[in-house]
Amino acid sequence: MTIAPALYLTRLRHIRRAPVHHEFEYRGYSWYFDLDAPPRPPLPLRPFGYFRAVDHLEGPGTDLRARVDRVLAEHGIDRADGPVTALMGARALGYAFDPLTVFWCHDRGGRLRCAIAEVHNTYGGRHAYVLFPDAHGRAETEKRFYVSPFNAVDGRYRLRIPEPGDELALHITLRTDDLPPFYASMTGHRLPVTTATVLRAHLRAPLSPWLTAARIRRHGIALWAKGVPVVPRPSAPAPRRISL
């Protein structure tokens, strides 16, 4: 049984306490749907909100569910034989940027088996964390991906990512040995997908992926201006040479 697509009108909050205090809160929106029944926004609004598998999870293919199965297989997990639901942003005018996408993978009986939290950075990189949340949606994992030029690739994430219902409440805390925790949250309430709600969401955060990327860069400039040291981006691994 598939789940009807929904919209969440959200509030995103970030709090950094060191080496300077910096926090912000923005309004936005996210889509929630079963991968087997993706939303189809009203035709006039479709250029401002549509989905492509290539925007999420590494690998070949144009089927998002197949990409989820490939990530699970890489972690030694059998493919999800039940619903896979996702919370994500959409493309707008040919551009996609979604800092956090979450997939909830269920068994045939509808029980949650695991979750995939995919993180994107503004450099075009992405990384998928496979998680096993408890009954309250809590999970932990080591940080393995360069997200911000102001945070090193170390520390441990504590996440609370319960699958959304009438309300959405995701919380992420990054803990390191020498700094106070960095905190981020996304909260919101659920709406059905109609022409009116889609238009309302677009007016709330026009051209959402473009706006999100611009906001991140703006706050990066603000942190740099405050003297926060920049952590160099790790070099990409050199290509392997094959001798013939």
Rank of each mutant, 00 (worst) to 15 (best):
Thr2Leu: 02
Ile3Gly: 00
Pro5Ala: 07
Pro5Lys: 07
Ala6Met: 01
His14Gln: 12
Arg17Trp: 00
Pro19Tyr: 11
Pro19Cys: 11
Pro19Phe: 11
His21Ala: 15
Glu23Asn: 14
Phe24Ala: 02
Glu25Lys: 11
Gly28Gln: 06
Phe33Lys: 02
Asp34Ser: 08
Leu35Trp: 03
Asp36Ala: 14
Phe51Leu: 14
Arg52Glu: 15
Asp55Trp: 12
Glu58Ile: 00
Glu58Gly: 08
Gly59Trp: 05
Gly61Glu: 07
Asp63Arg: 13
Arg65Trp: 05
Leu72His: 06
Glu74Gly: 09
Met88Ser: 14
Met88Asn: 04
Arg91Leu: 07
Gly94Pro: 11
Tyr95Met: 06
Tyr95Ser: 05
Asp98Thr: 13
Asp98Gly: 07
Pro99Trp: 04
His106Ala: 08
Arg108Ser: 13
His120Gln: 15
Asn121Tyr: 08
Asn121Pro: 12
Thr122Asn: 07
Gly124Lys: 10
Gly124Asp: 11
Gly125Tyr: 10
Tyr129Ser: 06
Tyr129His: 12
Leu131Cys: 05
Leu131Asp: 02
Pro133Ser: 05
Pro133Tyr: 04
Gly137Ser: 03
Gly137Asp: 04
Thr141Gly: 01
Lys143Ile: 06
Lys143Ser: 09
Phe145Lys: 04
Tyr146Thr: 05
Ser148Arg: 09
Phe150Lys: 09
Asn151Val: 06
Asn151Cys: 07
Asp154Glu: 15
Gly155Ile: 06
Gly155Leu: 06
Arg156Trp: 07
Leu159Val: 13
Arg160Ala: 08
Asp166Ala: 14
His171Asp: 13
Thr173Asn: 00
Arg175Asn: 06
Asp177Ser: 13
Asp178Lys: 07
Pro181Ser: 07
Phe182Ser: 14
Gly188Lys: 02
Leu191Arg: 14
Ala196Cys: 04
Arg200Asp: 10
His202Tyr: 15
Arg204Thr: 15
Ser208Asp: 02
Pro209Asn: 07
Trp210Leu: 09
Leu211Met: 13
Ala214Asp: 09
Arg215Trp: 12
Arg217Ser: 10
Gly220Leu: 04
Val230His: 12
Pro234Val: 08
Ala236Glu: 15
Pro237Glu: 11
Ala238Leu: 14
Ala238Lys: 15
Pro239Gln: 06
Ile242Asp: 07
